[in-house]
Design a protein around this nucleic acid. Structure first.
Lengths: 136, 136
DNA sequence: TGTATAAGTCTCAAAAAGAGACCAGCACTA
DNA sequence: TAGTGCTGGTCTCTTTTTGAGACTTATACA
């Protein structure tokens, strides 16, 4: 048994719903992970890890995100300290988003996961097909 | 510029919404990542990485997941090949969930991200507080 | 004058998630 | 033998989240 895994599990168990003052904020790992395991967060992190982008550029880069969710996801990433938002006084004003040091730090492990996905999507696809075939 | 990042970005761009036959399935990285970046997936992976669990055990371990979402998330993880589901002919029948080899393989990078979260939740919390203080 | 651009916000509809009742089959207890 | 509890779910209803797309404000340019 990997002691690191056990250590993570104990963190998980800290949060017991409905046990008085229990709150999701009491489980730090979940608190952080749920901030980045959204549909769009990792995608935007991936884009911004390459270079800073403006709002409209991101919208064109990820054509199937709604403006609403782009605004909101960038706002959340900024709030958690991963992304820096800078307004330039052009006419009309333009806004540039870039990774902070914390964002780059987080992108390290995230990137590992993205690479795993790139390498193993064949296996996942195959598992999915096999599963769908047997349950149909 | 990290050439691996650029390579991932090119994968990202494969999918253009509304461009004829374009479909989310055309971007393998997104396809895989969106399967595991749900609210509960990483949490259940973390639990099952420790040891196999039965349905009811998982429900007690993660007290704020609804039975509906536990069923559904386990089903999705099984479909993608990360989790194995085994029914034991006890009375009443019990069901055990465990990680597959593919699941353990994926948990490697995921675990890195979880550890990052454990180490850096203080910084994230601080960023959040600072952000909330300035915008209020 | 009319059009375009930037970065959003607003409203409404659709989809997803949460809460909790309900189910079948068997074992145990009273 | 009737009642209770356990298993791992499903079903329905409500609330929350997301998506689609019109609208905004100020400026520049044709």
């Amino acid at each position: 048994m990997d002691s690191k895994i056990v250590s993570l599990r104990s963190k998980l168990e800290i949060y017991k719903a409905g046990s008085g003052g229990g709150n999701i904020a009491d489980c730090p790992v979940r608190d952080v992970i749920q901030g980045i395991s959204n549909k769009w967060s990792s995608l935007l992190m991936m884009a911004l890890a390459e270079k800073p982008y403006r709002f409209g550029e991101l919208r064109r880069l990820v054509p199937d995100i709604s403006q609403r969710m782009l605004t909101q996801t960038l706002h959340d990433l900024q709030r958690d300290g991963y992304v820096h938002r800078e307004v330039f006084p052009t006419k009309p004003p333009s806004v540039e988003y870039s990774l902070t040091d914390l964002g780059r730090s987080m992108f390290g492990p995230l990137h590992q996961l993205l690479q795993w996905a790139e390498l193993n999507h064949g296996a996942v696809r195959a598992a999915r097909n096999a599963f769908d075939a047997t349950e149909a």
